[in-house]
Design a protein around this nucleic acid. Structure first.
Lengths: 307, 307
DNA sequence: CAAACATATAGAAAAAAACTATCGCTAAAT
DNA sequence: ATTTAGCGATAGTTTTTTTCTATATGTTTG
């Protein structure tokens, strides 16, 4: 196998038309070129140069291979150059994992600001169920994860981002509680819909159902908060919807009543996660602090910043 | 500067997801990869892999650079492959030099057969004045030359190819000699036209003019046999035209009378030339013998094969 | 808590690359 | 005709790079 250096020698000698001149230009001695060119010719199985007394000329074969060698060298320089660009970290593509119940309602607030701050940064967003987010992060399918993940192994850094209240959604023709705030006692015996078990959201809802005596309806096994909302509108039950979803998707009060819970005890907490030893961890920290800023600035009417 | 091997290591480790596995696959030991990858990372200024307990994963930067590295490796393999193709010699492009007074009339007979014999051979034909042909060959602008070159330095091999008679061309309304064959004595006092002094043809004509007492007219300074023919038709003088030109371009006997010279003493001789130490010299020999065959087979009614 | 399995490291050995000195050859200058 | 200058090739040595062996370090798993 040849080396890039040999190709440089090839190019330099072809250019200079003489081993000695090329050697001088390259800052090596002439025997080096003699030997290395012979080695390259050996590898390629082709004589590249015709050594005459006056000059060292390309053979027809050398003439044909030279442009290819030059192209390869130029491609190499490109690689080095883009590596140096990438080394600033904010010029890479990172794979971000988020749950389906958060991504569509959080990211539209985040991405424009991040894009503005890190012009050349690209985030490859993939939605996944929380368990899979953590697994995927550990196994390297994701570089960073934002989601409602409570506990992580040592190899993962978890930084709490914000607390997202859950709102009770009920049909307009049904009055759960007369006040704006719903008390936990109001829930007793009610029929509750929720997304499937793979979601943290489901577990939160299970807990409050147990506490209040509400009944968790298992008719729906899905992932879409939109579907859940439709089911509530159709009178199939009540549901707890996260604040960012409500903020972003509930615009018609005549269709659905959305009420906070008294005491603010019903919520989920989202964290920012990455592998502890990821080489880009410092950049992830920086990303994280930008995200915190955006949340505090633009979303603190909806969620409670943490950490 | 990195080596292609380091890029192979990069690719193999990315593929295997583990230094050990990759090392085994590559037939080297694991520390080799540790060291070489670190060196590559150093060169690129970028961390390519995240070394975890379970595996060695690409970093975002590594993920972006991998395709480029693979492309470079594939380009390298292409170079090696085309080099091996070219090494058969008949897959290259050779630069052939010929005089303007020969090329257009000889090559159409040669090239189809050569192309048939060496499918992937390409000849880059350039026309040049004989002196320049020899100079260009010595200096490497040409790889092979076919032309009327009589003597060459030691560094050039000259192989006589064929003898090409010259015919006397005269206007139909002027009778130089009553017979088919013109005797030298018939030429005395006649006005002769010729191409310019840089051509061997001119020198041949000068010689015969001196010998026979014909007068060489210097009104025309050009290179084109076609122009010379037109001038004869217009009655501006006589001219000596080479056999291959006559064979290929003189189709209208009512316009121009073309007569051989008695004794066959007026001719020019073409040779096949190449640099003695050219790495492809063996192929040139083979080319030459093919050319001889074609001449003997297709042109021996017009020229006299030599050598 | 040890076994298994990953990468990292240190130091020796091997291989490759580059250097110095010199040769042989040709071409141009004397 | 001989010398001289300039070219690439070669031999042998030195330096640098690469690879190896052996071992360390750390993490996960049973």
């Amino acid at each position: 196998m040849a080396s890039l250096r040999q190709l440089e020698y090839f190019s330099a000698v072809a250019d200079a038309g003489s081993l000695r001149k090329a050697a001088q230009r390259l800052g090596v001695t002439q025997p080096t070129l003699t030997v290395q060119l012979r080695a390259l010719e050996e590898i390629l199985g082709v004589v590249l140069f015709e050594r005459t007394r006056n000059a060292t000329l390309l053979t027809p074969a050398g003439r044909e291979l030279l442009p290819e060698a030059l192209a390869l060298l130029s491609q190499w320089r490109n690689i080095v150059e883009s590596a140096h660009l990438i080394s600033s970290h904010s010029h890479s593509t990172y794979r971000l994992g988020v749950p389906q119940t958060l991504g569509p309602y959080l990211l539209p607030s985040l991405l424009p600001t991040l894009h503005q701050r890190f012009q050349r940064l690209r985030l490859h967003v993939r939605e996944e169920v929380p368990d899979m987010l953590l697994k995927g992060l550990e196994e390297g399918q994701f570089d960073i994860v934002i989601g409602p993940i409570a506990s992580v192994p040592d190899s993962i850094v978890r930084e709490p981002l914000f607390r997202e209240p859950l709102f009770l959604a009920s049909p307009v023709d049904m009055e759960v509680a007369p006040h704006t705030n719903v008390a936990e006692s109001d829930l007793s015996g009610l029929e509750i819909l929720a997304v499937d078990e793979r979601h943290t959201l489901r577990r939160e809802v299970e807990r409050i159902c147990e506490r209040t005596g509400a009944r968790l309806n298992s008719d729906y096994e899905g992932t879409s908060l939109d579907t859940l909302r439709q089911m509530v509108v159709m009178g199939m039950g009540l549901a707890f919807l996260p604040a960012l979803y409500v903020r972003s998707e509930i615009h018609r009060p005549e269709e659905l009543r959305v009420q906070p819970l008294q005491g603010g005890k019903l919520f989920r907490e989202h964290a920012f996660l990455y592998r502890r030893h990821a080489p880009s961890r410092h950049f992830y920290q920086e990303l994280q602090s930008q995200i915190r800023e955006v949340i505090t600035r633009d979303l603190s009417d909806t969620v409670i910043p943490l950490g």
